[in-house]
Design a protein around this nucleic acid. Structure first.
Lengths: 214, 214
DNA sequence: CACTAATTGCCATACACGTTGTACTTTACC
DNA sequence: GGTAAAGTACAACGTGTATGGCAATTAGTG
């Protein structure tokens, strides 16, 4: 007895997986417009006709891929936040560690973020509903987790923070935008550069640029 | 005598202007791949054939448009920096004023920034040289101007800043990314939201989130 | 007004892509 | 091993697009 799932058509779900995985890779590589169904079929090692047996059309395929992938990433980020800000002894070190893991290009999510970068840029060309559900499943969810933990740190008096959501946003901006922004291109960032920018970002987040007495 | 430029073919340069302007609008609206020569011709009120009389192909048209527009924007930003950080009495107010003008959606540059957002996302699908020359003419140039002014403020002891280039990058990240990031979409930001985020960004930039004594 | 460069309309080529229909083959399961 | 569900190969349709050629037309300039 291998459970009730085994009695369901096995082949179908396997093919579906292959399609979703292949589609994410192709969308990541060439974008929505640049991706052809033929490319995706080849990448997934599946016939084009099979894709249309599983999905209504290119757009439905895309939104399915995006939603699945976004959720995976958000879950990972939530875990990251818990891991680093759950129990804090040295706040600055904890933030730096979190920052570095946040921006370090995770090979598992490489294609996902390529897709997301394009989506952000083209958000007005996709159906509102697709964009909305991506935001909810992905970035908003991760940001909420970060904001919630920061609010707790503020309650303990470790931070002064009138608007944790905005602070979380600023933290992410200081970390990610500055990493990407330095090169302005999607190059694979060097470990040393990540370290530099993460430390500087956290430092600014905590202390700012005004001279201090003592 | 109206000068030597008048003796040159007038029509040609006028048409060229129309093409460049129309192309920027269309590229801004639908992106590089989404834009067809027919669309651009219609928008510029010009025949498609004329476009090919002025430009080798779609790509050369695009890079010309991009370079011209980027330079226009960078010049404006350099002026902004001079205007607000040239003579500073109240640093925080000056930074807030600069921040607000920096992110306030300038209708003149709306299409430009739509193009740039897409370019950032797709930078690996454009020729390296196009991306490079855009960076140099646009964002790098603006960032350098900002960094230079900040360095001068640091010399005067108003700021503590080991790496002005990085600081400038962080400033821009705190201001722009947080404005956009709040909505995660290219909606037209409300004036009140701009004010909020600009103030908060500058505050973080100057003071950070650590509690202060006194 | 006449001349000439620039513009235009229209046609043509060549390709790529989304999507569908159909007839054939594979494969999980009884 | 047979059966039904799922997958595949192949071709086709319609559309959109970049680009080029050519003859007719326009509009600045002398």
């Amino acid at each position: 007895m291998t459970g009730p799932t085994t009695s369901a058509p096995r082949r179908r779900t396997q093919k579906r997986r292959a399609i979703l995985d292949g589609a994410l890779r192709v969308f990541g590589r060439v974008g929505y417009l640049g991706a052809s169904i033929d490319m995706i079929a080849a990448e997934a090692d599946v016939s084009t006709r099979t894709i249309y047996n599983h999905f209504e059309n290119k757009e439905e395929l895309f939104s399915t891929v995006l939603l699945e992938s976004s959720t995976r990433v958000a879950v990972t980020r939530e875990a990251l936040v818990e891991q680093h800000l759950g129990v804090v002894t040295d706040l600055e070190s904890a933030l730096i560690a979190l920052a570095k893991e946040w921006v370090r290009p995770n090979p598992d999510f490489e294609d996902h973020f390529r897709v997301v970068r394009r989506l952000r840029a083209e958000s007005d060309r996709f159906p509102r509903e697709v964009v909305r559900s991506w935001q909810e499943a992905g970035p908003f969810r991760a940001r909420r987790a970060l904001a919630a933990r920061m609010a707790l740190l503020a309650d303990r008096g470790l931070l002064v923070m009138p608007d944790p959501e905005l602070a979380a946003q600023q933290f992410m901006a200081l970390i990610t935008d500055a990493t990407i922004g330095r090169a302005e291109v999607s190059t694979t960032a060097l470990e040393s550069e990540i370290d530099r920018v993460a430390r500087a970002g956290v430092h600014t987040f905590l202390y700012g640029y005004l001279p201090r007495k003592g």
